[in-house]
C-alpha cells in the first residue's frame, strides 16, 4: 500500500501526515508537489492541512485548480482512496469531491484543541476498522471548519450514509457544547457517495502516538491498510 502526500505552497501538516504513514504505519510514502501531475504508484492520496496558497480568496479555492488536483480528481473518480484533512477538507469541498462548503467558525476564532469525534459510518475504507459510535480523541486546528450544506444536500448525505464523523463529548453525546465551530449537526467529516473520498477537519495524523496525547488517529490509518489487504 503506497501513500502519496500532496504538498502545496503553504501546506504545514504534510510532514505530520508523512510521519504517520511512513514511520508509524511503515507504509511506502512519498510527497507529491502541487505542480506535478503524476501520482506514481499511490494507492491513497492524503491532502494535508495547512494554508495552501495562503488561503487567498477562500481556503482551498486556489488549490482546487492546481495541476496535481486535476490528477487527484481523476484518481478519485476512478475509485482511488483520497483523504483530506483540515485544509485538505477545504480543498476537497471546493473541488466538490465531497459535497458542501466550509464557512468561518461561528466564534470567528482559529480554534486549536483536543476534540472527541464519533464514528457515524464504518462503510468507508478510512473507518472500516472502527465500530459505529466509536469515539476517538483527535485534535482540531482551524478557522474555517463550519460545515455547510443546503437542506436537499443534507438529506442526500443522510440517505447515503455520508456523514462519517461528528463532534461529541467524551461519552459520545453530540452536544452543542461539543461543537467547536458552529458546524451543521456537529459534522466533522463527510465522504463522497462512493465512500472512497473522506474529508475531515480533525487531524488524525496528529494523534498517532501516545506521547502526542492520543493515538486514536492511528485507527484511521490502520483501517486504510487493512481495507486494502
Amino acid at each position: 500500500m503506497n501513500f502519496g502526500v500532496l504538498v502545496f505552497p503553504g501546506s504545514n501538516c504534510d510532514h505530520d501526515a508523512y510521519h504517520a504513514a511512513a514511520h508509524i504505519l511503515g507504509a511506502d510514502t512519498k510527497f507529491i508537489w502541487h505542480k506535478d501531475t503524476d501520482l506514481g504508484n499511490s494507492d491513497v492520496i492524503i491532502v494535508p492541512g495547512g494554508f495552501s496558497y495562503g488561503d487567498y480568496l477562500r481556503s482551498g479555492a486556489i488549490a482546487k485548480y492546481s495541476p496535481v488536483m486535476k490528477s487527484v480528481i481523476d484518481f478519485a473518480n476512478k475509485g482511488g482512496l483520497v483523504i483530506g484533512i483540515c485544509n485538505g477538507m477545504q480543498i476537497l469541498t471546493e473541488a466538490q469531491l465531497v459535497p458542501g462548503a466550509m464557512l468561518h467558525n461561528e466564534q470567528l476564532r482559529f480554534t486549536c484543541k483536543q476534540t472527541y469525534i464519533k464514528t457515524k459510518s464504518n462503510k468507508t475504507a478510512f473507518t472500516s476498522g472502527l465500530s459505529v459510535n466509536e469515539v476517538l480523541q483527535i485534535p482540531i486546528a482551524h478557522g474555517e471548519g463550519n460545515y455547510f450544506i443546503d437542506e436537499d444536500g443534507l438529506k442526500s448525505l443522510q440517505d447515503n450514509d455520508q456523514i462519517i464523523f461528528t463532534y461529541c463529548d467524551s461519552d459520545g453525546l453530540e452536544t452543542p457544547e461539543a461543537n467547536p465551530n458552529g458546524t451543521l449537526l456537529n459534522i466533522a467529516g463527510v465522504s463522497n457517495k462512493q465512500g472512497n473520498v473522506l474529508a475531515m477537519m480533525p487531524h488524525p495524523e496528529r494523534a498517532v502516538e501516545k506521547q502526542l496525547g492520543s493515538d486514536d488517529g492511528l485507527k484511521i490509518f490502520e483501517s486504510i491498510l487493512s481495507f486494502a489487504r
Binding site: 479555492a61 469541498t93 455547510f148 443546503d150
Partner: peptide, 8 residues
C-alpha cells in the same frame, strides 16, 4: 468557477 463558491 473560481471567484465565488456557489454552494455558499
Amino acid at each position: 468557477k473560481l471567484l465565488a463558491n456557489m454552494v455558499m
